[in-house]
């Protein structure tokens, strides 16, 4: 009885490890890691102009040349990586006031493994101006938006081809 239990436990453990390993090396994990790396770049701020340009160039690497970014009601869509990079450099002083965190990243890779539909929540946490730390919980510190993302594999690297803000409340 005990031996049988141990065998079953070992088989379950091996299967769990195998599935974890396959997930870890799969496209879903790669995409999640890529999106989190983009967020890290967005959250990394530099005080000087040259640093802003370098940061914008780094951010640009995560997008395809023909990327379309739609941020929802009241804002015109941004088309093209160059436009996006210019915006990222220009908006640096404003974006340095908050940090972005991604949660609930749902990835659906197409059967040909060349594109993926992603649905995620982006939390925007405001920092206190003095310390740069997230604001106290009593302050209006957080906003959250849902995004639909389409990513394409370009030269073996996952890049964002379309980013659309989803209106949870219409």
């Amino acid at each position: 009885m005990t031996l049988r239990f141990l065998r079953a436990f070992a088989v379950c453990l091996a299967l769990s490890l195998l599935s974890a390993c396959s997930w870890w090396q799969g496209d879903k994990a790669l995409i999640s890691a890529r999106l989190n790396a983009l967020v890290e770049q967005v959250n990394a701020h530099s005080p000087d102009g040259l640093g802003s340009l370098a940061r914008a160039a780094q951010i640009g690497k995560f997008f395809t040349d023909d990327v379309i970014v739609e941020l929802g009601r009241g804002s015109a869509p941004v088309t093209g990586r160059d436009t996006l990079m210019a915006m990222a450099a220009r908006l640096e002083p404003r974006t340095s006031g908050f940090t972005v965190k991604l949660t609930d990243i749902n990835v659906l890779v197409t059967p040909n493994d060349q594109s993926a539909d992603i649905n995620l929540t982006a939390e925007i946490i405001r920092k206190t101006p003095a310390s740069g730390e997230p604001a106290a919980s009593s302050a209006p510190s957080m906003d959250a938006r849902e995004f639909a993302v389409i990513m394409r594999k370009v030269d073996g690297e996952w890049k964002i081809a379309r980013l659309t803000a989803v209106d949870t409340l219409k």
Binding site: D104, A144, R145, E146, T168
Partner: peptide
């Protein structure tokens, strides 16, 4: 509570 992409972050309305 209204979910966004998942249940981790919700709107309360």
């Amino acid at each position: 509570a209204i979910r966004l992409a998942g249940p981790s972050v919700v709107y309360i309305k």
